[in-house]
Each structure stands twice: as structure tokens, then as C-alpha cells.
Amino acid sequence: MTTTNHTLLEVRNLTKEFPLRKGFFNRTQGSIKAVSDVSFTINRGETLGLVGESGSGKTTIGRSLLRAIEPSSGKVLFHMDEGQTVDVTSLGMNELRTFRRNMQMIFQDPYSSLNPRMTVRDIIAEPLVVNGTSNRTEIDAQVRDIALRCKLNIEHLRRFPHAFSGGQRQRIGIARALALNPAFIVCDEAVFALDVSVQAGVINLLQDLQVELNLAYLFIAHDLSIVEHISDRVAVLYLGRLVELAATPKLFANPFHPYTEALLSAIPEADPDQPMRPVALAGEIPNPANPPSGCYFHPRCRYAEEICKTTTPEWKEYQPGHFAACHFAGELALKGVENVKEGEA
């Protein structure tokens, strides 16, 4: 994988295993690989969309990058503005705590992500307080500044979260994530829980902030229309492994992996004149504790051949910027979404 001086974050062979405990003595009996061998990069100021179905490991990747959960192996390299590179995965607890200001997170549930016992002002101020800003007037000034940026009403800062609806709460969550001026934010299903009419406002806010502050997002979602709308590039995950990664229009117009094709065909278009023609996938998503041999997708893939059952396909760059893990990447005539032009963007 090539890195340029635009690269902000580099993920190499990230793996996360969860021990599988059983029995009276809680003994570890094997493990579930929630994420295996995932590698990708994120550039400064770009949005990488991460899609996959439930249990595919999206959230685990997002949290591992921030070390909200500890990855089992692999590296996460963060390229600072000053040119130096920090290996996030090898930081000690104290170093990590001070490093955290560079990477933040926006959560899915606007209700459980705000402490109901703190005022909005205190919630937004917490990252500042924790990181050593102790002057009250300075904190207040910064909180106001961030709140304004996130289009929150300054008058409401003394209220508690229970005074707010989902959309406003999510703005408070965004404001908290911005308090330390990070370069990278993980948005974990950040608009999923919001009402449709409110969702657009939050998406627009995220896009505006990205331009203003040159933020990079890892945008985790399962709604493909939203991912297509907000992402520069999209990565597709299946059972803990990346199956495809490409620039958004490329991936949507001309997918290389049969699973991507199936996902795209299942998008319910908000247009009665474009009826959905979903590719039928055989069977169900396999149990991650007992994944199939070879290519994880082969039991459900209509193009699968003998090699797919035995050999794990390699994660390769088939065209510039277009990665896939499929033995027949580029050889199959896969259908994308018709009204996306590959040359767009």
C-alpha cells in the first residue's frame, strides 16, 4: 500500500480476536476473529466510508483505531502535521491519553452518548478540562465557539441533555468530538438513529466541518445511499475482512467483488420507477466463530469456483486505488448502480 504526504492514517493488518469463553471455569475455548488482517489508509480531509452488514466488524475496526478496544495485532500509524509518525498501537497508557486529542469519535446513539447528569456546557468542556485547560473563561469561550460552529443555541448551554431531541443531541456529540481540534473522527453510524428530516442537517454539518477544519472521517454506516453521498472512498467489509475498497463512484459504478454487487443491488432507491432487482444471496451470513474455508463469501457467491473454496483471495490493488479480495476481480461482469458515472467526482 502506498502512502503519500496526504496520508493521515495508515492501518496495517489490523486484527481483533475476541476470546470465546465457555463452561464453568470460564475457560477460553478458541476465539472469534471479529476483524482479520485489515489494511487501508485515510487521507487528510477525506471521508472513507465503511460498509458491511451487522457482525461484519465495522464498529470493531472503528473502536480499534482509537484503541477504545485493544487490537490483537496489526499497526495503526498516525502521520502528524509536523511530519513525524506515531504508532498508535504501541503507545503506553499515559502517552495514549495525551495522544487521544488527535482522534475522536461520534457515536450512534445520541441518548447514551451524553451523560444525562452534565450540562451541555460541561459535556463539551470535558475534553478541554481533561487535557489541562483550567481557566474557566477560556473554557467558556472555547465551548461557545465550538457550539456556534455546530449550530447549537448558546442560550441552551446550561441545559441538560434531556432537554434536547436526537438531532440536537447529535450536534452536542459532534461539538464534544471537535473540542480538542482533532484531525480524524470516527463516525460510528452517526446519523442512523436520527429522524429523516433531521438527518440531512447533521450530514450537512459534518460535511461543512470537514471543509472548514480539514477533518478526516471514517464513516461507518450500513445505509449505502448515505455512504455514497458523504464518502470520497468506500471500503466494504464481509465477516471481518475487507473485500473491496475504491473511490466512491468507481465502487458504485463498477464493483469488483460479488458481495459489493449484491449490496448495491439491494439499495432501495427512493424512486418507484427504479425498482430494486436484488441479487439473490444463497443462505445466511456464516457464524464468525466458524467461518467458511477459502474466500469467506464463497458459499453465497454465484460466481464461486473450486479455488474459492480452498484459497483465501489476496487483498490486491487491481486498478490504481481500487483494491479487492477476489480471485476473479475485474474479470467478472458485475453490475453496479446504473446512474452512477465512474468518471464523476
Binding site: 477504545a68 491519553r97 469519535m105 451523560n115 470535558e126 475534553p127 481533561v130 487535557n131 456529540g173 464534544r176
Partner: peptide
């Protein structure tokens, strides 16, 4: 988690 990620 948010507090932890803020460095608390």
C-alpha cells in the same frame, strides 16, 4: 467511552 477517548 467518550470520556476515555477524550483522555480522562
Amino acid at each position: 467511552t467518550a470520556a476515555r477517548l477524550a483522555g480522562a
